[in-house]
Amino acid sequence: MKKKNPFKNFVSKLIVYVLLILFALFMMGPFLWLLSVSLMPGENIFAFPPAIFPTFIDFKNYLEVWEYMDFLKYIWNTVIITFLGVTLSILFSALTAYPLAIFRFKGRNFIFLLLVSTMIIPAAAALVVNYLTINNLGLINTFTGVVLPTLVSVFNVFLFRQAFMGIPGDIRDSGRMDGASEFRIWVQLMMPMIKPAVAVVGLFEFMANWNSFLWPIIVLDTEKYPLASALSFLNGQFSYNFGWIAAGTIISVIPIIIVFLFTQKYYMEGISGAIKG
């Protein structure tokens, strides 16, 4: 081992921290500024020079927008949509991925081809037809209609498949010896083994469902909007009331950041499991 010069070591550490902080300002700065706007009711954000740091703190914007927008209703809508989306997506994607990892059967390669091809079609092109389909199924203005079209994604299927392939074959064999059905093996032996993958898919689906705004606007009435849709509605209606919009945005962002903080310890493990050279 080369002996390290303590001064050089200190300088390189300093440079690393300076870079880390600069990047953090770049990524977090806009949110911190939004927070400061939301805490300064009556302040004009387009004043020049602008107020960047809060000179006083007042929660009036939060109270007013909470009152006006009936946020609880929108949060509740978002929670139901997200819950449906996350659980059903994990269930269907893991079910689809399992045979692709374990069995070899005719048509397997064809299914791979189908899965990959879903990445190719521009989503906007499918919107019209999907709207007609949801309409024909009688699911307009229902939460099921919101989550159904995006439940199975290629990314999730591949991630689960990769995770299932990492499980030693003995485990499945032992289940079979005990006479368990394939479905029981899947539920009781396999699923508990792929928790990191479940966490990653769960987080991605949480993000996708919590943040989706366009499809819910197309399918739902205003009453049933999730937060992101309501926020774009608020932005269109009260574009002059910066404080309200800022407060509403902060309220909508907080839950997802909390979820991320709780799932991030599985995150790296899940990602590295998904990509194998």
């Binding site: 977090m28 806009p30 909508s252 962002v253």
Partner: peptide
């Protein structure tokens, strides 16, 4: 901190 823009909705990001 670097991951936070990823988890926030595009509506929020667009407003900011």
């Amino acid at each position: 901190a670097y991951y936070i823009p990823v988890v926030t909705s595009m509506v929020a990001v667009a407003i900011i």
